[in-house]
Simulated scan of single mutants.
Amino acid sequence: MTHPCITAVGTALPGPAVDNDELTRILGVNREWVDAFIGTRTRHFAVDLATGERHTTLTDLAEQAAAIAMQRAGVTPQDIDFVVLATASPDELMPATVNKVADRLGLDQIPTYQLQSGCAGAIQALDLGCLLLQRPGHDTGLVIGGDVCAKHLQLDRDFSRLPSHELVNYVLFGDGAGAVVLDGRETAGGMAVHTVLNQFTGRGQPAGQVIRWFGAADRTDDVTAAEEDYKAIERRVPNLADEILWQLLDTTGWTPEDLAYILPPQLSGRMTAKITKHLQLPGVQEISCVADTGNNGNALPFFQLDRLAGQLRPGERALAVSVESSKWLKGGFALEGR
């Protein structure tokens, strides 16, 4: 059986890394709290925290990541048959960011798709990309994920008075984008996608994360743009990650002993370590990046894939696990080196 193949990965981060010393100095919050509660060392923002100037858009980052992936795969705009972009933070509601990216890349007369979701959106985009490759004439596609969370950062606030469900967003998240070239033919040196899991699992459950969009008529000062139920996330995500792991193993027929690598959910440095320990996979190498990149949403699985691409040897197997807390989504995929 021929599986879709990831032939190249590209990633992009905006601006220099912002470490915890700089972040807590600007925000005036406790450094020890960030280290102990979040466990993320650095992140990148599309805004200058000192001046409030926004210097990078999601379109910029997605274009950069996609261009790198295309260059590494040795493909031209004429080789691309479709583009899928996943994001929770498009530059505008219209035009869709995916179409602005396609325009910059020199793509034309091809289908484009934009999926709105949080961390699991990247998995949804990969799932759609694999399905599109089954269409006649669809041989090669671009799958992109990215977020610019900085648009929700109000830097003129009194952070000492913010409740924890708001303050956590300022220290947890970062910005970035990633992309893969996906091919319907298995390619030497690529990563074959054996299966993709994309499953809603939040029936009857309150949202763990809310990000609001405001129009000119419904913007009010007493409604926050973003909030996070971090305690619910800490409680539910490890168990959901375990469910995803075993669902993927059951679907592929693999065992834990078959795995060389695990790509765990990238919520924060601290949470990732907790989840990886919970999965109990001794001898399986962890591929993580969130402690260095911050939680940049739909970009994270691509940053993990970028790190994995240089290590996965022919025949080696890897599983990626992703959990989205907005309304509780399970996502993941299984890879094998070619």
Rank of each mutant, 00 (worst) to 15 (best):
C5Y: 08
C5D: 11
T7Q: 06
G10M: 01
L13S: 12
P14F: 08
P14V: 12
G15H: 04
G28Y: 01
V29S: 08
N30L: 05
N30S: 14
A36E: 14
I38V: 15
F45Y: 14
T56I: 00
T57S: 15
A65V: 04
T76E: 15
T76D: 14
I80C: 06
A88T: 10
E92A: 13
V101W: 05
R104K: 15
L107D: 07
Q116V: 10
D127P: 02
D127Q: 12
L132S: 10
L133G: 13
T140D: 01
G141V: 07
L142T: 00
D147Q: 09
D147P: 11
D156Q: 14
D158H: 10
S160I: 05
L162P: 03
L162Q: 11
V168S: 07
N169S: 14
A179F: 00
V181Y: 11
D183I: 02
M191G: 02
H194T: 09
V196T: 10
N198K: 04
R203P: 00
Q205T: 06
Q209C: 13
Q209W: 07
V210G: 06
I211E: 11
Y230S: 12
I233V: 15
V237H: 06
N239G: 08
A241R: 09
E243L: 14
W254V: 10
D258M: 06
L263M: 15
L263D: 05
P264L: 03
M271H: 06
T272W: 01
K277N: 11
V284S: 02
V290W: 00
P301Y: 00
L305D: 07
A309P: 01
G310R: 12
Q311F: 01
A320I: 04
E324Y: 03
A334H: 00
G337L: 04
